[in-house]
Nucleic acid binder design. Structure first.
Lengths: 229, 229
DNA sequence: GAATTGTCGGTACTCCGTACCTTAGACCTG
DNA sequence: CAGGTCTAAGGTACGGAGTACCGACAATTC
């Protein structure tokens, strides 16, 4: 159905135009629908909400990540994670000016910023679910930290590109992924092989303290007293 | 002004009650204001929005994190990060049933979920800014991943407690922080040295102590001093 | 005691989002 | 071709969040 898709595109384009011209809060859905040549009802039917008009490709991207991770074999999991993240990066790079317009909007409109963050969390969730399935329940925290790190690294590079701080986002992305491998690679590999993490045995109410090892006994005693008071 | 604060408390309590009784979408701001014995205008003046009524302590917590991190010296930065995170954890644990009611709401109402995530991102931002300042601009990615990891670990433990999966959230939190230290500690320390970060000289970096919880702070301090001497 | 300042409640308004209804066109079906 | 159904679109009406504004009523100050 090409007609439907072009109507959607017209609405998205009209929304971005009007937001840039008059600001987000000052633009009404009626104005967007009117410029796109559609009814207000159609806008909500196809975009869902005024905020969602800023992130029209979100579902496509999540589906792509999901598909790439689901297609991974035990031997290609690390590659799958990196490629899934790079797929998202490539998408935004291909958007070009549109991605930068979105960045300007999300930086100035708190509601859009919150919406974007929630969308990012959706990416994280997909990475986390797959990683957790690969690493087992006993490594749930590592899976969560790892998934978080991948999305963080992606965002880090993307943000630098959006701000015009780099001309080589792909190279920086590869460097970031290598840095993640250096940080977390061995731990993830070990977890993947089935190593289990033994929790602290807590026999009827014990307190566990972690202190920097350079503290003197007196300093440590002070810290303990302060922590327990 | 105690009267103002109690009015705020009444509104928050009324909001939680009504959300539990009738659901979030089915509850109107008028109903909340009426039950709290206050005008609708006052609700928006003091809470800001219907969603914000669910997270009334958010500003206090961010201020606490900020203060704890700002008070860190180069020698106590790692401790400051852990304590700042534990401050947040303690706050939610102290809330008890209220925190669990909030969890039920955020799990069922997408708008509240998004709001909560945005709030968590605010925590991450504070950690990231401080870590980035400590580690220098060239380690921005590591700072971001590290800040992310701390918040993730905190959320991981908190979520397990909210789901009733653990009776020892403090012990699990300490274990999680220890795991983070094992994962990222050396990298952070190395980065910190490039930015005049005097870190733990010994390998490992932390000492883990397990004490019976019935000890008084003084007794615990004595035991620690004796153990380290 | 009068003026001022700040807080609270009430009213009116805009606009988002949803429910419902109607219409126009495409596609059978006899 | 006549008539019926199904789908996609626009139009209308409504509820409710959030804002702007105004008046009432302290509390403070001179």
């Amino acid at each position: 159905m090409p007609a439907t898709s072009t109507a959607r595109d017209r609405m998205v384009a009209a929304a971005y135009e009007l937001f840039e011209e008059n600001g987000y809060d000052e633009t009404t859905v009626d104005q967007i629908a009117e410029r796109a040549g559609v009814g207000r009802t159609t806008f909500f039917r196809m975009l869902g909400s005024k905020e969602a008009a800023i992130f029209p490709e979100h579902d496509v991207l999540t589906a792509r990540i999901e598909a790439r991770l689901a297609a991974a074999t035990p031997r290609t999991r690390q590659l799958a994670i990196f490629e899934a993240a790079r797929t998202v990066l490539d998408h935004y790079l291909a958007e070009g000016e549109l991605a930068q317009a979105r960045y300007r909007l999300t930086r100035t409109v708190p509601a859009l910023r919150a919406r974007e963050i929630a969308g990012m969390q959706r990416y994280q969730q997909i990475f986390r679910e797959h990683l957790a399935g690969w690493l087992g329940e006993e490594n749930a925290l590592l899976a969560e930290v790892g998934a978080n790190a991948v999305v963080t690294a992606h965002n880090h590079v993307l943000r630098r590109w959006l701000r015009g701080l780099t001309e080589e986002p792909h190279a920086e992305f590869e460097a970031a992924m290598e840095q993640l491998t250096a940080l977390l690679g061995t731990a993830v590999r070990q977890a993947g092989e089935g190593a289990s993490f033994a929790a602290t045995p807590a026999a009827g109410g014990s307190v566990v303290l972690v202190l920097p090892s350079e503290l003197s006994p007196e300093q440590a005693a002070d810290a303990v007293r302060a922590a327990l008071s």
